[in-house]
Amino acid sequence: MYQDFFELNEKAFGNTPDPKFLFPSRQHQEALARLEYVIEEKGMAMITGDIGTGKTTLSRALIDSMDERYKPILLLNPRFAPAQFLRMLAQKMDLTPKKLKSDLIDQIQDRLFSYYENNTIPVVIMDEAQLIPGKSFFDEIRLLTNFQLDHTNLISVILIGQPELAKRLQHHAYAALNQRITIRFHLRPLDEQDILEYLQFRWKVAGGSAERFPFNETSINKIYAYSGGVPRLINLLATTCLIDALSKGVAEISAAMVDQQADDIGLLPNPANIGKQHGRHGRSAQAR
């Protein structure tokens, strides 16, 4: 597709959570540093953010950063019963789950002690945690944090979800779990000054050259206006614009092309974002 036309090694603006494409903005670096601290201390963390702000990509970058001491246990889309959660956790720990819950819990606890004796730190990462169906499920998560020795915990737990996760856990019914969360971080959309660097970063990672970078000042301004700085929307707009540029045989993406693609997708510009970047992004900036 457009990769050959723009001399890229791969897609620059895909929406898969490839950790090498995690843009090192200040907030993403801070979030990653906090998560690395939590798993080192075998604590509990909660990362929230609106749809498309890079939560899942951040979790993959965390897994990529782990050395052989850690055993990441990634659980996606947790819309299942508490008993299913424990069984899945046991399977992720390379166990054959027992049928009775009491036996299953003992089985998991024994495995955690075995990990400790072998200097292994299990890290449970639960993505889309706002989908957890009920309090009883959260109670099982809290149970995991009860597995500890006098001087250390035996497991790290990271909850990742949309903002309603944090609101939900503020309810007094979840106080016991909420109090165990030592690190909290909320991912926000990118700032306006980050947009050019974000596009350039992903372009470079995909093997693109500065000379073939197709976005100019006005098209970047439009991308920010339509996306609001949400990385997933930036990627969507950038991809459709590159495809449009390929079909037209042009090397530069204009503001009009962004307008057309945004209209096709159904995105409306935020008036507060229009024109904020005027004067920030010239063609000379693209070669830096």
Rank of each mutant, 00 (worst) to 15 (best):
F21S: 03
G14Q: 08
I47R: 08
A33S: 08
P19N: 08
K55D: 02
G49Y: 13
S25H: 06
Q27W: 05
L32Q: 01
K11R: 13
P24R: 10
L58C: 00
K11A: 13
K20F: 15
M46E: 14
G14P: 04
P17M: 07
K20P: 04
M46S: 07
A61N: 05
D18F: 06
F23P: 09
G52E: 10
D18E: 12
A61T: 05
D18N: 09
K55E: 04
Q27T: 00
H28T: 05
T48G: 05
M46G: 11
E41P: 08
G49P: 14
A61M: 13
I51K: 15
F21V: 00
R26E: 12
G52T: 00
E30M: 01
I63W: 03
T56R: 08
P17H: 06
T16Q: 14
Q29E: 14
R34E: 09
E36L: 14
K11G: 13
H28W: 05
K11D: 08
I63M: 09
K42C: 04
D18G: 01
I63Q: 11
P19M: 13
G54H: 09
A12Q: 05
T16E: 15
E40P: 03
H28M: 07
Q27G: 10
I51W: 15
I51F: 15
G54A: 06
T56H: 04
R34S: 02
P24N: 13
S59I: 14
A31M: 00
D18W: 10
G43L: 03
T48L: 11
G43A: 04
T56I: 14
R60S: 04
G52K: 00
A31N: 01
R26N: 05
K55H: 03
L35E: 12
F13N: 07
R26H: 10
D18V: 00
T16C: 09
A45C: 06
L22M: 12
K20G: 03
P19W: 15
T57N: 08
L22N: 14
E30L: 02
F23L: 03
G43E: 10
T56V: 11
T48V: 11
A12Y: 07
L35M: 15
Q27N: 12
V38L: 06
I47H: 07
F23C: 02
I63G: 04
F13E: 10
G43R: 14
T53L: 14
F21N: 03
G49N: 09
L22T: 06
